[in-house]
Design a protein around this nucleic acid. Structure first.
Length: 569
RNA sequence: GCGCCUGUAGCUCAGUUGGAUAGAGCAUCGGAUUUCUAAUCCGGCGGUCGGGAGUUCGAAUCUCCCCAGGCGCGCCA
């Protein structure tokens, strides 16, 4: 099943081709109309072609329309403004599409014609440290992109590039051996590991001993290796709890240490190929040929003392991923501060191989407190992710018990969990990821506006209708869209496929949240204006189907954000 | 010093890649409930898109110059 904009785009491009010929034709650039009074979709591409041909855009649009075959989908198209072509969907087309979507598990979203293999690298917490707000955006955005791309039919490989190696382990090993408190360890292993790290790190007199422990670990000493593995196990147990709460999972968790055996060869090969060279004792990659990178510092892949760095690991990781999975795309979800680093890494890869996957750094801004400063606790420490999720659930619980005290405690808890976690995720995903965002409990848990609870509430209202509807509804009921609110809602439902494609194309989850907000809004308008259960047949059954489809799209949409719906609130 | 990012309504933010009269939410003001969950809906108010110049049929969007803020720049990740 093709969506309306695809059908219109094909038709416009065909008409353009036969009007101006293949050498001048261009993309139709079909977009939703800026204002519904113009229609449903507009073609912006005619003006660009006219400009290149130095023709009058409106005249060209008229010629294109004369060739245009869209009567199946649209009312007769019209030329407007500077040379737009406007299309208004035929109600019959909308009802057919809705009827098809109702019968379709995928809600009318086609599987991509050419599936890509996409590696997504996200979350990447550090062993022996708690996950804090700094990890939340990577985890949530990466998970959302993976879900959307997977749903569209791409082969997605998610990989959690755990920070399980580095100089901090010397201090941890020493602390573990000499200053460990077993009771504290039992209580909260990560807090104890963090304490040990800080304790040793603050004492200069322990520095040499810590370094010696690190060297033993690096040389494969059995005892230190066993303790280090214990650090990883303890950390993973904690991380898994958090991932469980968030509903996030990974195909692979290859930590940085996984690549240790490959680092030496990676540096050797980059040297052999002339990509890296020695400078001031270190092995560096310079980018003299790259105007953007040539003035910056080089990418160092081996220190003067022989040690490797995270750039080295990144290069080895890339080689492994390419060899292992042959991806078409590799996506890194990290904060914006690493932009320079990834530009250097990507530039190095492009020197290394003639053909590389599409490498994308999907970066995001910081989370700020309401004072505009990076979010911290009152004591100035980073906010721990688990504590944040606890508070989200507590705040949601307070609302649930106030609004719906009659529900059982278990039900209230389940609602609080879905609403609280959902609110945190939604607040993050609904921002344009490239900018910093201000964290605000009251905004994310608000029942109105572009929030998770608003979406969940719209879903609940539909479910409530079904609880009262009684008799089962059939898919074969004819769809009738008479009220303006019905038609408006239906047309918006049909935009689900194009929305998901846009999200995957530009790695922008906030386009999906916007879509869902509009959908819930349009549903609420429909809900106010169009009685369902009290209507006469066949309107009643038709509206029930529209309700069910709306609920299915909301559920699917929020699930693609990694958020759960609930049956009542 | 060099580079990247950001600056849109009182506040928090969208703005699909150059398209039509710049949109939401919050706040504020007013209206709607014998009706399927009012955790709702409808309407009003509110803008020199940081400033200036340029590119063109058309600029919040592209270019240049300023101003302000954030971040990053050789052996941390």
């Amino acid at each position: 099943m093709s969506s309306a904009p695809d059908i219109i785009a094909d038709a416009v491009e065909q008409a353009l081709l036969s009007t101006v010929g293949p050498e001048h034709a261009g993309p139709a650039l079909i977009r939703p109309c800026a204002d519904p009074k113009f229609g449903d979709y507009q073609a912006n591409g005619i003006m660009a072609v006219a400009k290149r041909l130095k023709q009058n855009p409106r005249a060209l649009a008229d010629k294109v329309i004369a060739q245009l075959q869209v009567s199946e989908v649209s009312e007769p198209p019209t030329v407007a403004g500077a040379g737009f072509i406007n299309f208004r969907l035929k109600p019959a087309f909308v009802t057919d599409q809705i009827a098809a979507a109702v019968k379709d598990d995928r809600l009318g979203v086609p599987v991509v014609a050419k599936p890509k293999t996409v590696v997504i690298d996200f979350s990447s917490p550090n062993v022996a440290k708690p996950m804090h707000v700094g990890h939340i955006r990577s985890t949530i955005i990466g998970d959302c992109l993976a879900r959307v791309m997977r749903f569209l039919g791409h082969r997605v490989v998610t990989d959690n590039h755990l920070g399980d190696w580095g100089t901090q382990f010397g201090m941890l090993l020493l602390g573990w051996k000499r200053f460990r408190n077993d009771d504290a360890l039992k209580q909260d292993p990560i807090a104890e590991l963090e304490r040990l790290y800080k304790y040793v790190n603050e004492r200069d007199e322990l520095r040499d001993e810590a370094k010696a422990e690190l060297v033993k670990l690096q040389r494969g000493d059995a005892e230190n290796t066993a303790i280090w593995k214990c650090f990883i196990d303890l950390s993973m147990q904690e991380f898994e709890k958090t991932y469980g709460r968030l509903g996030v999972s990974f195909d692979h968790i290859f930590g940085e240490s996984f690549y240790n055996p490959m680092l030496k060869d990676t540096v050797e090969e980059l040297k052999r190929l002339g990509i890296a060279r020695q400078s001031e004792g270190a092995i560096c990659v310079f980018f003299e040929d790259n105007p953007e990178l040539k003035t910056a510092a080089p990418l160092i892949i081996q220190k003067a003392d022989g040690a490797f760095l995270y750039g080295t690991t990144d290069m080895a990781t890339l080689k492994y991923r390419i060899d292992q999975w042959h991806p078409d795309e590799i996506v890194y979800v990290t904060d914006a501060r690493q932009q320079l680093h990834f530009k250097q890494v990507f530039a190095t890869v492009r020197k290394w191989w003639k053909q590389t996957p599409d490498l994308r750094h999907v970066y995001f801004g910081s989370i700020l407190g309401e004072d505009g400063r990076p979010l911290k606790t009152r004591e100035g420490a980073p906010v721990k992710l688990n504590a944040l999720l606890d508070e989200a659930e507590e705040r949601a619980m307070a609302v649930v018990t106030e609004k719906n005290p009659g529900l059982s405690l278990d039900t209230q808890k389940e609602i609080a969990r879905a609403v609280g976690i959902g609110a945190v995720k939604y607040a993050d995903l609904s921002q344009n990821r490239t900018t910093d965002y201000v964290f605000s409990w009251s905004k994310m848990l608000a029942m109105t506006g572009n929030t998770a609870p608003y979406m969940q509430y719209a879903y609940v209202r539909v479910q409530s209708i079904f609880r009262k509807a009684g008799a089962a509804k059939t898919d074969s009921t004819p769809i009738t869209l008479e009220h303006a609110a019905e038609l408006d809602l239906a047309k918006h439902i049909l935009r689900f496929p194009e929305t998901l494609q846009a999200v995957a194309e530009d790695d922008k989850p906030n386009w999906l949240t916007s879509y869902l907000y509009d959908l819930s809004n349009k549903f609420s308008t429909f809900y106010e204006n169009c009685p369902v259960l009290q209507s006469e047949e066949p309107t009643r059954s038709s509206r029930l189907l529209l309700c069910r489809l709306t609920a299915d799209v909301i559920k699917r949409g929020v699930n693609l954000l990694g958020i759960d719906v609930i049956e009542q609130m």
